[in-house]
Structures are given as C-alpha cells and as structure tokens.
Simulated assay, not measured.
Amino acid sequence: MRTTHSAPLLCAISLLGINGAAAQSPPDSENGRYTLSAVKDGVVRLDTRTGIVSNCSDKGNGWACYVVPDERAALDAEIGRLQKENEVLKAQLAARNGAASGKSGDALPKPQRDSERKIEIPLPSDRDMDRMMSSIEKAWRRLVEMAGRLQRDYGGRI
C-alpha cells in the first residue's frame, strides 16, 4: 500500500522539481538575447545586448559563427585617422607659413540637398553658334568632296 500512496507523492515532488527548474534563469538563447534570421547559407545572429551581428553556417564540420565586420566602426575609425592626419598637416602648414593654427572658428557649410542644388549652364552666344555651324558645314563639305573623289577614282562603282 505504501507504493500506491507514494506514487502521488512522487508525482507531486517531480512537478515541484520541474517548476523549480523553470524558475531558474533560462540560457541566453532562450531569454531573447539572440535574434536569428534565416539566410541562404545558414542564419544571421544578432546579439540584442551588444548589437554584434554574426553569420552562422555549417561548413561540414559543425556550425560556426563568425562576426560580421561592422562598417560603421570601420568608417568611424577612418574618420578619426583622417582627422588626426588633417590636424598634423595643418600644424605643418602653419609652421611653414608662420601663420597661426590652421583651425578656423567658422562652421562648415551645410551640405545641400539634391533639390537645392542648381546647375546653371549658360547658353552659347550667337557668335559661338555661328562658329559651330561653320565648322560643321566645313566638315560636311569635305566629307561630300571625299565621297565624290572616291566615286571618280573607282569609276562610279561605289
């Protein structure tokens, strides 16, 4: 009889054990830390805590994830390098010219949007048009004369 009474007790204890395990913190992959998106050769994994993007794929010897290069970080690094180089060049130029620092207190001009950019192309004057038409006319006459000479030289067989 003890076995029949102990069965519900064991069942209750096992359920409490399961609930205790569920109360523990789940692994990071189940906590929403990583977001996975399927791509052609595997998955892209986004670490929502750090923002690091990795490309994960199975190359035949197991799954491996490789960090995707961050273009923004590379651009920021290049901008920083160019700013330092620019400061050095300005200092060298100022030393050569005996002028003060190459820095200016003026703000950089605001970049224009495409809609604000206006390209003005001046129209040619009448004199320019006459010169162009004269050149084209001379070239046409020479072409016609050359065709006539070829016909005469080949006896009209062209």
Rank of each mutant, 00 (worst) to 15 (best):
R49P: 01
P27F: 06
R142T: 01
N97T: 08
R113T: 14
D128I: 02
R81T: 06
K110S: 03
G42H: 08
N55R: 11
N61W: 14
D28V: 10
E78F: 01
I121W: 07
I119E: 05
Y34W: 15
A38V: 13
E30S: 03
D70A: 08
L93Q: 08
L15F: 12
G42K: 02
R81E: 12
S6K: 08
S14E: 05
Q24E: 07
P69D: 14
R96H: 07
G102V: 00
W63I: 11
L16E: 06
T50C: 05
V67A: 14
D126C: 04
K40L: 13
D153H: 03
E78Q: 13
A73T: 14
R72Y: 09
S37L: 06
S57A: 15
V67R: 07
G17W: 07
N97G: 14
L46A: 04
V68R: 11
M129Q: 09
L93C: 12
M129I: 09
Y154C: 13
E87F: 07
C11R: 08
S125P: 04
D76C: 03
Q92W: 05
V43W: 00
T35L: 06
Q83H: 08
R49A: 07
S14M: 13
D47L: 05
K138N: 00
G102N: 01
I13D: 03
Q112G: 04
I119D: 09
T48Y: 07
I79Y: 10
N19C: 06
G105E: 11
P69Y: 00
R141E: 11
I158E: 09
E116D: 15
